[in-house]
Design a protein around this nucleic acid. Sequence first.
DNA 1: CGCATTTCCTGGAGGC
DNA 2: TGCCTCCAGGAAATGC
Length: 276
Amino acid sequence: MPELPEVETIARQLRAALVGHHFGRAVLLRPDVLHGEVRGFARSIVDRRVVAVDRRAKRLIITFQPQAQLFFHLGMSGRVVMENVTAPPAKHTHLRIAIRGNETELRFIDPRRFGGIWFVTKGKEPAGRGMGEVGPEPLEIKLSDFRHLLQRRARIKSLLMDQRRIAGLGNIYCCEALHRAGIHPLTPAHSIDSPDAARLLREIKSVLRHAIRFEGSTYMDYRGANGEPGSFQRFHRVYQREDQPCLACQRPIERIVTSGRSTFFCPRCQPLSPNL
DNA sequence: CGCATTTCCTGGAGGC
DNA sequence: TGCCTCCAGGAAATGC
């Protein structure tokens, strides 16, 4: 489940591998993963020089000359990896792009196909499922703006998961940040007081930076662009730890479902205020 | 407005 | 061993 730290890791690795290089031949094995200006895609990108690789929200953006971009959304099981051209492609490899004068190629692999690729030119914005409007970056948002975000009735976990409000957080890092901040996931956002809001934002930033340092969390599918798993799962305090003791207080971690998602928390460290 | 439900999709887990 | 069913889950559409 690639969230902000996982996509950031892939972006950094791809940046090192791609910037300054030219795309070679592209082979789209599964055309329905490609959106945007689909017509003539392979012809459009061949021989173009990559000038930047960025991340915005959970999206990976490859920019190349002149005036064209590839957006990747990895969904649940998507991977973007650099592999040797002679290595047999994994099952569910949907796109391969050769790199000129290089033995590695870029491969997009996505078994569950919740992810996708968007190709746009002339500064146009991609649109459609997975490419909707997204809120501010959590590592850049100011405390005053974050406080403003919390002025709604929604439960804090649902709000943090809503990409239109704040970008890049998914199930893992929402659960982890809420535990570290001592806030119950079902707390109405507007009832979080000012010091707790500051604490929550601090913990969000801290857990994201820490996770980036450890190249993300690999629970099942996630791999970096170099094929290596992340190791931040070692530091998970609640995610996927149902019935295991809280690392702070020993109470068993509980799992509930909210907004259709598994949500893990410690009932002692994250009490739900009874007067709500 | 906010939340639950459904849809997309596959691999893995559990039942028998 | 193998078949079947169920389930997770990011995002968005739909219903209440």
